[in-house]
Design a binder for these strands. Structure first.
Length: 275
DNA sequence: AGGGGAACCCGTACGC
DNA sequence: TGCGTACGGGTTCCCC
């Protein structure tokens, strides 16, 4: 489930590996992953372009093309961008949905097992409009305790919902919302507006720390996430609560509980530490 | 406006 | 063993 650390890892890998490569051919194998353009338009507008830069915004991997257009990939649950230098196993290639052939003989596959992820092609204007609706990047210096406090005070929703609202904070999903709230010892179901400035400061630090640490370990492979080389992320072993309902709280030893009370999504917490 | 729910998709788990 | 069905999960869109 690529959230910020996973999409950041993919984007950094791609930027190092394929920036300045020219896309000689494009194959759309599963056109239902495409957004904003038809398969025919996608092929016509991407073929022959050079990749100027690969980067991340929110949970999106963005490929800037020499034409000033952007290929915007949203991997959702089971999507991955895999570089094939000839050694990509058949088990990965069989789920390829879009294939970009590069001028050096390599291919970049957007592989997506369940195909809930998307690939869009956007003009510069469209991309600017699209991304302007996204919230603050948590690893940007603008994401201060005071800023988070303002965001939280504006909503009476559960604080966990606000963290996962991409219009407020960009890039946090279920895994890192659970982890950050546990680190900050805040009950995920608390009304955001009732989080004190001191708690918001703790939460801000917890968010920055967990995202930074996860990037250092190349993200969390809970199930299908892979980096651009097909490798798993190493942060899964360092998760304190996500996927660990029934186990002991690493801080106090109390048994962690899992609940679907917020948004129908799994929330794991320590009822003793997070109250 | 903001909340609720459906749709998107298919591997996996589970029931018979 | 084989078949059928329910489920999950982020985002978008529609409806209230």
């Amino acid at each position: 489930m690529p959230e910020l650390p996973e999409t950041e890892t993919i984007a950094r890998d791609l930027d190092r590996a394929i920036t300045r490569a020219r896309i000689d051919a494009v194959r759309v194998i599963r056109s239902d992953v495409l957004r904003e353009v038809s398969a025919r338009t996608f092929v016509r507008r991407v073929t022959g372009r050079t990749i100027a830069r690969c980067w991340r915004r929110a949970k999106l991997v963005v490929m800037d093309l020499s034409s000033a257009e952007h290929v915007v990939v949203q991997p959702r649950f089971t999507g991955a961008l895999l570089i094939d230098d000839g050694a990509l196993p058949e088990s990965e290639r069989r789920y390829s949905t879009v294939q970009l052939s590069l001028d050096d003989g390599r291919c970049v596959h957007y592989r997506d097992i369940r195909r809930l992820g998307t690939v869009a092609l956007m003009s510069a204007d469209r991309f600017a409009r699209y991304t302007s609706a996204l919230g603050t990047e948590p690893l940007d210096p603008a994401f201060t305790a005071a800023h988070l406090s303002v965001l939280l005070r504006a909503s009476r929703q559960a604080v966990k919902r606000v963290l996962m609202d991409q219009r407020a904070v960009a890039g946090i999903g279920n895994i890192y919302a659970n982890e950050a709230l546990w680190r900050a010892a805040i009950d995920p179901s608390r009304s955001a507006a009732r989080i004190t400035p001191a708690e918001a400061a703790r939460l801000r630090d917890a968010i920055v720390a967990v995202l930074t640490e996860s990037i250092a370990h190349r993200g969390t492979s809970f199930r299908d996430y892979r980096d651009a080389s097909g490798a798993r992320g190493g942060f899964v072993d360092r998760l304190a609560v996500y996927g660990r309902a029934g186990e002991r709280c690493p801080r106090c030893g109390h048994r962690l509980i899992g609940t679907h009370a917020i948004d129908g999504r799994i929330t794991v917490l320590c009822a003793r530490c997070q109250s």
